[in-house]
Simulated assay, not measured.
Amino acid sequence: MSATIDLLHDLITEVRTESFTAEIAIGSAAICGSVIAGSVVAQRWRPHAGTSEQFGWRLARMVAAAMAFAVLSVQVSLSGWLTAADAPMLHWPADHRSSGWTRTARIVTEVSGLPVTALLGLSAGLILWRRHSPGAAAMLLGCVAAAAVAGPLGALVVGRAAPPVIPESSYSFPSEHVTTTTALVGAVLVAFGAGGSRGRLRTAITAVGASAVGLVGAAQLYLGEHWLTDVVGGVLLGSLIVLTGSTIRQRSIQPALPGDSPITVLPVASPPSA
């Protein structure tokens, strides 16, 4: 038993020691990306699969997103290889700022703050409620609320110092603006059925949502309020929250499909009468 404990301790120590090397970072990113892409392709390839199989692919994406966020968090906390681009990405906008673009970036930052995000989430939830979709409304509001809590909590756990333009007492990983925006946009796309759209319409809707998230992240970088990995962490955390919320909702409402194994209910014989 002690040998097993020592082995686990050595393994954890090795992972922590090697977690900021390029090999571990690239390998983990490749695995997570492959699982997410593979599960999406498989689900598209078998649209009429049973609920158990569909749930399995959704669960695989959740685990991959969680793993990616965990690896990035460790990298950030240990100033690992993935943080190498943070300093250049912070300094380049500082050397190319203009008053007009700075004003625009500040407007984007204000609009993507928690008060506006919460108001937009409540408005979308009200629309869904009036459309007799209380489950979708609850999922959307739950994702926004979870993002509002998870962002600051993650910042406290990782404890990464913010860039110099931010007060020293502030933590920056993950970006709370990007986390809540990603959660809101993703939950809106799921709740209003963008995934059920076809062809160019689905692509266009997804592109608009991704552009909104990218705009918020770019504004944070341009103003020097976050490191690059803070923005990436916000996207990963927000996506994980949406994946979790949509999977729970889908599992609770989706009927059995032909691919599922039927459950046979055996009759119970009544005791013989005296």
Rank of each mutant, 00 (worst) to 15 (best):
1 M>N: 12
1 M>G: 13
1 M>E: 14
2 S>E: 14
3 A>V: 13
9 H>P: 00
10 D>Q: 14
14 E>I: 07
19 S>C: 13
20 F>H: 13
21 T>Y: 09
22 A>T: 07
22 A>H: 08
23 E>I: 07
24 I>R: 04
28 S>Y: 00
37 A>E: 09
37 A>V: 13
38 G>M: 00
39 S>G: 03
39 S>M: 07
42 A>C: 01
43 Q>K: 06
44 R>D: 04
46 R>I: 07
51 T>W: 00
51 T>E: 00
54 Q>M: 13
55 F>S: 05
62 M>A: 08
62 M>Q: 09
62 M>F: 14
65 A>Q: 11
67 M>Y: 11
76 V>F: 07
80 G>Y: 07
91 H>I: 12
94 A>M: 11
96 H>V: 08
97 R>M: 14
97 R>K: 14
106 R>L: 15
109 T>G: 09
109 T>P: 02
110 E>V: 12
113 G>K: 01
114 L>K: 06
114 L>N: 08
124 A>G: 00
132 H>G: 01
133 S>T: 08
135 G>K: 00
140 L>H: 02
145 A>S: 07
146 A>E: 01
148 A>E: 01
149 V>Y: 07
149 V>L: 15
150 A>K: 00
152 P>K: 04
152 P>A: 07
158 V>K: 06
158 V>W: 04
161 A>R: 13
161 A>V: 14
166 I>Y: 03
166 I>R: 05
172 S>N: 08
175 S>C: 11
175 S>E: 03
176 E>D: 13
180 T>W: 03
185 V>M: 11
186 G>H: 03
188 V>W: 01
189 L>Y: 07
190 V>D: 03
191 A>K: 05
193 G>W: 11
198 R>W: 09
201 L>E: 13
202 R>V: 10
202 R>Q: 15
210 A>P: 04
211 S>F: 15
214 G>F: 09
215 L>P: 01
216 V>P: 00
222 Y>T: 03
225 E>Q: 13
229 T>N: 09
230 D>H: 06
231 V>C: 05
232 V>R: 00
233 G>S: 12
234 G>W: 02
242 V>S: 02
242 V>C: 06
243 L>T: 03
245 G>V: 02
246 S>D: 08
247 T>R: 05
248 I>S: 04
251 R>F: 00
253 I>A: 08
255 P>W: 11
256 A>D: 12
257 L>V: 06
257 L>A: 12
259 G>V: 05
260 D>E: 12
260 D>T: 10
260 D>M: 10
261 S>A: 11
262 P>F: 02
266 L>K: 15
269 A>C: 11
270 S>W: 08
270 S>N: 10
272 P>E: 15
272 P>Y: 10
